[in-house]
Amino acid sequence: MEGLPKQMLATLVGCNYAGTPHELRGCINDVLAMRDTLVARLGFAPGDIAVLTDDDRSAAVLPTGANIKRALADMVARAAPGDVLFFHYSGHGTLVPHSHGHDARQLDEAIVPCDFNLTTDVDFRQLVDLVPQGATFTMVSDSCHSGGLIDQEKEQIGPAAVTDLADGATATTRAVRGRFLPYATVVGHLSGSSGVDASHHVADHLLALFGADASAKFRHHDTPTPSPDGGILLSGCQTDETSADVAADGGKACGAFSSAVQAVLAAHPAPLSNREVVSRARELLREQGFEQHPCLYCSDANVDAPFLCQQEEPAAIPAL
């Protein structure tokens, strides 16, 4: 109903993969910091923020592929025109062949939930297509190869805008690890449980293990021509790059991109546009010596829209 305040809903996912060969350090810290920012700075209600992390294996809701998609689907199902939806993911990313074909040059983006049930660019495309007109779905993905994670979304800041490190920028000396799992590693991990020993394509293993909970990319699905929508992706890097997981150095471990976004928001109390958040994060990472280039994918209408629909604080009325 017109006049009612819009809903602000969020799903935050952090996967550290503790105790595995793929362990990361800063992903859970990223989403907990973002939760605090959403509440303190951006006006989200704590009860409207779902947090899925893998730090407690007894947790009721772990960030498995099915649970992540279910949480996102529930968030979208609650949405109405004018609502603000937000998804932050920190964890591993990977690239998968587009199909069972032999053209290995065509690779698509995916995130790697704690159970390796990949959530792909097609899943995010289908999710965005369900967002009511007039609502927005903003996604921050601090993972490797995250550029293009919403299939067919328009690139606004991306590889065409990349420049070399300026003179004076120095490479970071902190311990970093890429948030990337090679395709062969993903297939090897899944093949140990799927029983499909002869296949080298991830689709066969995911379908055998997860059935209907596997990504729509690996099942029959229609790919409609996208129209202007409310999907907004701020990616930690380009499709061909890795995102850094930074070990603690006198502070908390974190993702380089997540930390940059936090720093940008903290330094600029006034609302920033999606373009400004990505551009300023790019510049900060360049100054810090990180070789990754955050990107922005969205419709033309959302490039200069305020990040998460921030509003100017009303001016104080002077006392008489």
Rank of each mutant, 00 (worst) to 15 (best):
V202K: 05
G251H: 13
D197H: 13
S141I: 14
S273H: 06
S299L: 05
T163K: 15
S227G: 04
F116H: 10
L4M: 07
C237P: 07
A169E: 15
E283P: 02
D300W: 05
L24N: 02
C309S: 08
G91K: 01
C309Q: 12
P63I: 06
Q152A: 05
V76L: 03
P5G: 04
L72H: 02
T170R: 05
G43K: 13
M8E: 09
A45G: 02
Q156I: 14
D54M: 00
L130K: 15
T239I: 11
V84A: 05
R70G: 09
T53E: 12
A281C: 15
R25C: 03
E241H: 08
C15F: 02
P159S: 13
N16I: 00
S199H: 13
R25K: 13
S143K: 01
R105N: 11
G211C: 02
L308E: 10
D56V: 05
A247I: 03
S259A: 09
A59G: 06
E291K: 06
G178N: 03
L206V: 04
G289Y: 08
T53C: 10
V51Y: 10
T119Y: 01
V61W: 05
S235Q: 03
P318F: 01
E23V: 14
V128A: 15
L284R: 15
A71F: 06
A79D: 10
Y89K: 03
G230V: 06
S191M: 09
Y183P: 02
F116L: 09
A73C: 04
R57L: 12
D108R: 15
L149C: 03
L130D: 11
G147N: 07
Q311W: 06
G211T: 01
A248I: 12
G178S: 10
L85S: 04
G3P: 07
V31C: 11
D300H: 13
T173E: 09
A216R: 14
I111K: 00
E109Y: 05
H205R: 10
A18K: 08
D129L: 14
R70C: 08
G148N: 12
V277Q: 13
A315N: 03
M75V: 13
A248W: 12
D249Y: 13
S273W: 04
G82W: 07
H100G: 13
D222P: 00
H189C: 02
A110H: 04
K252W: 11
D55I: 00
P228L: 09
N29V: 07
A79T: 08
D55A: 03
A319D: 06
A77N: 11
V162D: 14
G147K: 08
P314V: 14
H220I: 05
G188T: 02
A18S: 12
D123H: 09
I317Y: 10
D249R: 13
D30L: 06
A256L: 11
A169G: 01
M1Q: 11
H102K: 12
R219Y: 02
D164S: 13
G43F: 15
P314K: 05
R25F: 09
C15N: 06
Q288P: 03
T64G: 02
T20W: 08
S99D: 15
L52R: 03
T225C: 05
T37P: 00
V84F: 00
A214C: 09
P5F: 03
L95W: 00
L52T: 04
D54K: 04
